[in-house]
Design a protein around this nucleic acid. Sequence first.
DNA 1: ACTTGTGAACAAATTCACAGCC
DNA 2: GGCTGTGAATTTGTTCACAAGT
Lengths: 227, 227
Amino acid sequence: MPISDPAVSRLPLYRAIAAEALGRGEAFISCTTIAEQLNLRPVLVRKDLESTGISGQPRRGFRTSELLRSLEESLAWGGLNKACLIGAGRLGSALLEYPHFSRFGLNLLAGFDIDRSKVGLTIGGKPVYPLERLASFARQEGVLIAVLTVPAEAAQRAADLAVQAGIRGLWNFSEVQPVVPSEVIVQRVELAASLALLSKRMTEAFRSQGAAPGLSKALGEHIPFNA
Amino acid sequence: MPISDPAVSRLPLYRAIAAEALGRGEAFISCTTIAEQLNLRPVLVRKDLESTGISGQPRRGFRTSELLRSLEESLAWGGLNKACLIGAGRLGSALLEYPHFSRFGLNLLAGFDIDRSKVGLTIGGKPVYPLERLASFARQEGVLIAVLTVPAEAAQRAADLAVQAGIRGLWNFSEVQPVVPSEVIVQRVELAASLALLSKRMTEAFRSQGAAPGLSKALGEHIPFNA
DNA sequence: ACTTGTGAACAAATTCACAGCC
DNA sequence: GGCTGTGAATTTGTTCACAAGT
């Protein structure tokens, strides 16, 4: 069953709602109620769930526990994927401390850093090792995914090391798009895109209310640009 | 000039490439070279830039400095938007420390937290205030955007406070979708969606190489699921 | 030759409309 | 009545094909 990229992006949202519903003890949940909470059309949710293969019961909806299980299975694509994190700075630490990646199929095992002051720490229950140990660790554990949370300057070098370590997928939080062999997948986390969309949606909202374009201008002031 | 959401999402990528090109002293840059670095079709880049209103010169391309300026102007939609951050934990601190939000039109002024041990700190040059001061600060400064980096349990309460403080846009890093009045825009940062796409793309890549589905299985092992 | 610029063709994603079920 | 399920229609986004400029 083919599933589109937009649909895949929405699965985690459905998962969160199913988990919440299950926590409230709701045995069944319908596409309509899921859609309501996300401001989506019910039929879109239906189509998305259909393409994951799960099926519901007419009149009742989807069995919540089954839906949750199916969604998490879909997100992991067959198994928990081992990963390590490169760059244990503030952002990297925040990710190491996040305890629920397993819900999305990610099994974050350890952090790596060149900074000796970070090496030896345990963050979120995960050890931080020196970067030189990445290759041996990754190969021994069969790690295929690396989370890249290094400064822009270090991104290419870190990516190179990851590739040498046998990594096949990079979850890239840095701003640079590292050059990698074609068989390695780089998925960039697009914070700026999200911010740009917020900006656009706010501007549209203000415009439709008759306010002048420019968010700051809506309050009658303007902050000039600095490159 | 109308511009689509996907196009808006790509503008930050173009901005980054234009900035890099300018740093290398390249006076002109073409859609073709931009597209190459992003694995996009040149005509898509052309259409996107067209919809921002910027125009180039046949045979030469776009004047790099002008392109950069135009893109940053487009991203800010008319002015730098004042923002404050709620929740100065590890993720919040990482964002406070990030010095380049102004490139995307965001003017992050201060952090707020209920944790008294964080109040009074200066992170990334920005002060951390007690949460009670959010309303007076936001109204006095004309802050319209709040960055939400609090734990899931605190998200709704933080969102409520933000709304009371006159905030009109929430950049939401938490996992919960807070309920807000319809005039307030909530833009969620979808880390899980990005991760799901990485998973999907890796699985597809393995499959096309003839490997079994499931990333871990590609190495001949399988880690069972835990809800 | 190589670019921007653009209307037309195409593909993808979403929504509509309705059938089937409990 | 309210849900799932699904083919068809519509909308949206992307790509093609080609005109025009330097």
